[in-house]
C-alpha cells in the first residue's frame, strides 16, 4: 500500500455565507522514499495542499492517510520547511534545532545523544560552524539550511518543503537543491516539495504533480521523471529525458492556463 494517501481531499474556506472551494477531489498516492514535486500557478492552492498534509489546515472533504492513520492535526512526523524559514530569532541556530529534538527525542535519547544528533543534522546541511549564531546573523540561504536541519532532526516520516527556495537567488538556490538531493540520497526520506520553478521540479522529483488552476484546483497530471540518480544539473541540461519532462510541465502549465481562461 502507499505510504501517504491523499484520498479525494478537498478544502473549502467559508467566511459567513460565502464559501470558496480552493481544492477539490485531490487524489495522490506517494510511496515511501519518493520525492514528489507539486507545481502549479501561484494561488492555485499548492501551499494549502501542503498545509493539509502537515495538518496545519483542516481538510474539509475526503482525507489524508499517512501509514494507515488519518492526518488531522500537525505533528513532528510531518516536519515542514517553511517558505520564509520561520526560525525563532531569539534562539541560536543550535537552540532552534534543539527545540524540535527535545520534543521528539526528549525521552528516548540521552542529553549527550541529543547533542550529537543536533550537531549531526547541522553538519548535514553544513551549518555546524554556525551553531551558536542567531538567525539574524545568517544569510537567507543559511537560514533555510537551518530550517531543513530543524525539520530533519525531528526524523519525520515525511519532509514537507513549502517553496523553500523561492526567496533565494539562483546560485544559492542551486546549492540548496544539491544539498536536498544529497540528503534525499543519503537518508532516503519521503519528501514533498511545493515549487513554482519548472527546473527545480524536474531536477529534484521522481514524480511531478501538476495542479490545475483554482478555484477548485485538483491534480491535472502526474509526470514520472525517469532520470537516474544521482542527478547532475549540468549533464542533465541537454539530456533528452530532462528536456522532454521540462517541456511536458511547461506545456501543461501554459496550455492548461490558457484553456482555463478560455473556459471561464
Amino acid at each position: 500500500m502507499s505510504y501517504l494517501k491523499i484520498d479525494h481531499a478537498g478544502k473549502t474556506f467559508t467566511s459567513g455565507s460565502r464559501s470558496n472551494v480552493v481544492l477539490q477531489d485531490v487524489r495522490l498516492d506517494i510511496a515511501k522514499g519518493e520525492f514528489v514535486s507539486v507545481i502549479g500557478h501561484s494561488g492555485c492552492g499548492k501551499s494549502t495542499l501542503l498545509n493539509m498534509i502537515a495538518g496545519l489546515t483542516e481538510t474539509t472533504s475526503g482525507g489524508i492517510i499517512l501509514e494507515g492513520r488519518e492526518v488531522n492535526a500537525p505533528g513532528p512526523d510531518r516536519a515542514v520547511v517553511f517558505q520564509n524559514h520561520s526560525l525563532l530569532p531569539w534562539l541560536t541556530v543550535y537552540d532552534n534545532v534543539k527545540m524540535g529534538v527535545q520534543k521528539v527525542f526528549g525521552s528516548t535519547k540521552s542529553k549527550a545523544e541529543r547533542h550529537d544528533w543536533i550537531m549531526q543534522n547541522l553538519d548535514l546541511v553544513q551549518m555546524g560552524h554556525a551553531a551558536q549564531k542567531r538567525p539574524a546573523e545568517l544569510s537567507g540561504g543559511m537560514k533555510q539550511r537551518v530550517g531543513i536541519a530543524r525539520a530533519l532532526a525531528m526524523e519525520p516520516k515525511i519532509l514537507l518543503l513549502d517553496e523553500p527556495f523561492g526567496a533565494l537567488d539562483a546560485l544559492t538556490r542551486a546549492h540548496l537543491q544539491d544539498a536536498v538531493m544529497e540528503i534525499h540520497a543519503r537518508l532516503g526520506n519521503t519528501m514533498i516539495m511545493i515549487t513554482h520553478d519548472v527546473d527545480e521540479a524536474v531536477l529534484l522529483a521522481d514524480r511531478i504533480v501538476m495542479l490545475t488552476n483554482g478555484p477548485a484546483a485538483t491534480v491535472g497530471e502526474v509526470l514520472e521523471v525517469p532520470l537516474a540518480r544521482p542527478r547532475d544539473r549540468i549533464r542533465l541540461a541537454s539530456h533528452p529525458d530532462y528536456v522532454r519532462a521540462r517541456e511536458a510541465v511547461l506545456r501543461f502549465l501554459y496550455e492548461r492556463h490558457r484553456f482555463v481562461e478560455a473556459a471561464e
Binding site: L56, P74, G75, P76, A79, S86, M99, G100, K103, M154
Partner: peptide, 8 residues
C-alpha cells in the same frame, strides 16, 4: 505553525 508542528 512551528509550535503546532512541534506539538507544544
Amino acid at each position: 505553525n512551528v509550535a503546532a508542528v512541534l506539538r507544544l
